[in-house]
Nucleic acid binder design. Structure first.
Lengths: 187, 187
DNA sequence: GGCAACTGGTTAACATGTTAAGTTTGCGCC
DNA sequence: GGCGCAAACTTAACATGTTAACCAGTTGCC
């Protein structure tokens, strides 16, 4: 509960010398990114909840709305969900009859997923609300600054991802550079 | 719109007309913020794991290293953890004897927490590694761009938080590229 | 053909996120 | 001094995050 507010702290006495080494904690980039994301998601979650969806379930539906017949790996990559989480979410969505599952003829290992009619209907019902939230955010923050923020975030990801595996001082096993970046880069 | 008899969608065929309404999903701000945070945290998590800590446990330890004798509410606010999560984490840290709990004399409802000697030792052991990671990030991304990103994120949070707690429509505001500055004084 | 290695997914186990409800303590107030 | 209510946590219940292990299907290769 208190994590969302910005209440003035009652006492700001910090431990002497405690912050001389580490960057000021609450100013660290991961924290700021988390805070920014929370500020944005706080507008989406209540709306999604009214439709009976979690944030992650909605991410999956959005992927399937744009790229039907995706396999699990592709959904995971596009929705930024880890495979185990996605596996559970898809099982749930299939139970709710929002998503249908089938196995492609060529490869019995894979699994393809598609929105059912019910899933498409739910997507169509939620999409306008989602869109409205995005417009409010853009209007409040300003389109120009928003674009700048997008660009910076993309550069940040590229700067850290391209560097690749940081702590890679160990045995160069079979880490051939044959696959530089299966992240995105398509289209 | 029958989703039948289709080939494996190895390519990037998007559903026709599926993206005309919603902003391109993977470009949405929450996703980009999540992606950026993941890129940063991917360097921290393995390091923390070697010390037997999760990301959130480390956040709590950092708060207590800088602000000893914090109560649960203050820790929650500074670490961006929700009260239920923090409650469990603190119980765990107390079990591990990294953190000590006591009740202040004036108010039996509150609970104050402090690092034990063991907790301080662990903090001292992890901090250099954490610091090194921050330096690598700053060096790769560039200090100047990093500061710009910090500023933008802070403005973003301020823009959405000040608006209060709903999707209330407000009068037309002009947002210049320069920002008057984050204001508090909520509540 | 057969076997090792790999691929795509799933399970398992534990920790956290999220919302709602419960519990104890403090505080104002008549 | 009892009553109503708010504050500060805590529990509960379910969903997801995270790592490791597992497993069936597939591929490469001798």
């Amino acid at each position: 509960m208190a994590a969302r507010g910005s209440e003035p702290s009652t006492g700001d006495r910090r431990a002497p010398g405690a912050d001389t080494t580490l960057r000021d904690f609450e100013q660290s980039l991961p924290m700021q990114l988390l805070k920014a994301r929370e500020a944005a998601m706080a507008r989406f979650r209540p709306m999604l909840r009214e439709h009976g969806l979690t944030e992650q379930q909605w991410r999956v539906l959005r992927v399937l709305a744009s790229w039907p017949a995706s396999d699990a790996s592709e959904i995971a990559r596009r929705s930024l969900l880890l495979a185990p989480s996605l596996s559970r979410i898809l099982q749930h969505l299939v139970t709710l009859r929002l998503v249908a599952r089938r196995t492609p003829p060529g490869d019995q290992r894979r699994a393809l997923f598609t929105l059912t009619a019910r899933g498409r209907a739910l997507f169509a019902a939620v999409a306008p609300d989602s869109e409205r939230n995005y417009r409010v955010i853009a209007q409040r923050f300003g389109t120009a600054r928003l674009e700048l923020l997008y660009a910076l975030l993309a550069e940040f990801v590229a700067a850290l991802d391209d560097g690749g595996d940081a702590m890679e001082e160990r045995g160069p096993e079979k880490k051939g550079p044959d696959e530089p970046g299966p992240k995105e880069g398509d289209r």
